[in-house]
Design a binder for these strands. Structure first.
Lengths: 238, 238
DNA sequence: CGCAATCTTGAATCATTTCAACATAAGTGG
DNA sequence: CCACTTATGTTGAAATGATTCAAGATTGCG
């Protein structure tokens, strides 16, 4: 059920059977959500965190009536592990596709912090990884051109889908509209359309019918100036 | 010595005398750094975290030879508490002014995680707060105009200096060049100059001789669409 | 005092954003 | 299965805003 989460963790550290068991049992409830449903509103008091089991979630902030997506979540991600220490969020969380989510009560996390220091460190790591992705997005918005940003996001998502086993060598399914991708990258849907056709013409990547097809991975990563170090995909030193 | 850090924590939660003592003793070494010195290089193996005791640090990433500052740190901030779980950073850390830094070995943090769950949660909170600021910067880059971004950053820093007791009602000292501020906001130094004079002409804020003077706080915050919720300045619910 | 860094201003260029109209695809009920 | 409706994607042209270049002014520092 939380297999994708476990894969994400196992790729970076050793998990004992006991620890895996604790994580599994920390998910007390599983719910479905329709596309377009707001999962969490900013400023609400929270007493549990949300693991995404299936689908795509967006965390976004509003300024006026425009939205900026600050993070995309795929299966195996905690969407708001940070709500454990923040208790309320500074952003909203939205289901971009139909989703299945698991709820982890903060009491369960509290217990992990008290009883399972190694597991607690791993959860802390997950929130720090989330922040590292934030930094790369800041950098993309600040320094990359619009087409580099699109290419970069496709590279990032490739690695993230890959580590949970949801990508194949040619690409991955990404059930999002061009406009939604644009909301992550400060790009109008009109831009998105133009940029996608130039990336296609260059033979780098294709995003059609909700699927990302990587045509030339090396060239795409070079074009995007993509360096996966910020995803901390390798095993953590002991 | 770490008084500014303690003030930042006390504003959000209760610290026992014992916990304060542990934090104080976790700083094993204090060092000075000149302006322009790189404190930490991306990808280096790290075995301690850095508290800033005095001065201003910038965390930045490079794409090609341009830099994007992803976070500014002031006295009382941990610059790389996240290095405890990440072990190497995805960004560089630079002293923008002469600085004093305190080093906290990861072993000391390890011990806190093992022995002091409440303190560990507070440290986790600090990294989550850091990420919340990242999100607001993403949002600024994505949705705010250039002059709103400048105004917003001045609002943010005001609150952050205020909570550690380094601001007065009229403003605060900010020992940075216009170009450095621009590197946080995707703004050329030429833009910065123009934007600062329009903000001055509007009677909102003045940045002269390394000091930010707030002329009309309400109007400035309204102009910047600033909502301090993301700084989690109030006490955490128990 | 003089040098170097920083800031200011104007003008030209370049990229992005917006507007508007149309095309295509997906989903629904007859 | 088709016609209808809505959502999504594409294209051209105009407007806006950011970036760059260049030159001069000011400030800070030795």
């Amino acid at each position: 059920m939380i297999e994708h989460l476990l894969r994400r963790l196992r790729a970076r550290d050793c998990l004992s059977a006991h620890e895996e068991d604790i994580l599994r049992r920390s998910v007390r409830e599983v719910k479905g959500r329709e596309a377009g449903a707001t999962i969490i509103h900013a400023a609400d008091d929270l007493d549990c965190s949300t693991v995404l089991l299936d689908g795509i979630l967006a965390r976004y902030k509003l300024v006026g009536k425009r939205r900026q997506i600050t993070q995309l979540h795929i299966s195996g991600d905690f969407a708001d592990l940070h709500s454990f220490s923040l208790k309320r969020l500074d952003h909203n969380i939205l289901a971009l596709t139909p989703c299945r989510i698991g709820l982890v009560p903060h009491e369960a996390l509290e217990e992990i912090v008290r009883e399972e220091p190694h597991l607690a460190e791993l959860l802390w790591f997950l929130t720090n990884l989330d922040a590292a992705i934030h930094r790369e997005w800041i950098t993309s918005l600040g320094l990359r051109t619009s087409s580099e940003r699109v290419a970069h996001l496709f590279c990032e998502l490739f690695r993230r889908f890959e580590i949970v086993g949801l990508a194949d060598p040619q690409g991955y399914s990404l059930n999002l509209t061009q406009a939604a991708v644009g909301d992550c990258l400060k790009l109008h849907h009109v831009d998105m359309s133009r940029i996608l056709s130039t990336l296609r013409d260059k033979g780098l990547v294709d995003f059609k019918r909700r699927r990302v097809t990587i045509r030339d991975r090396k060239a795409l990563e070079a074009f995007a100036k993509f360096d996966p170090a910020y995803l901390y995909l390798d095993r953590r030193p002991a």
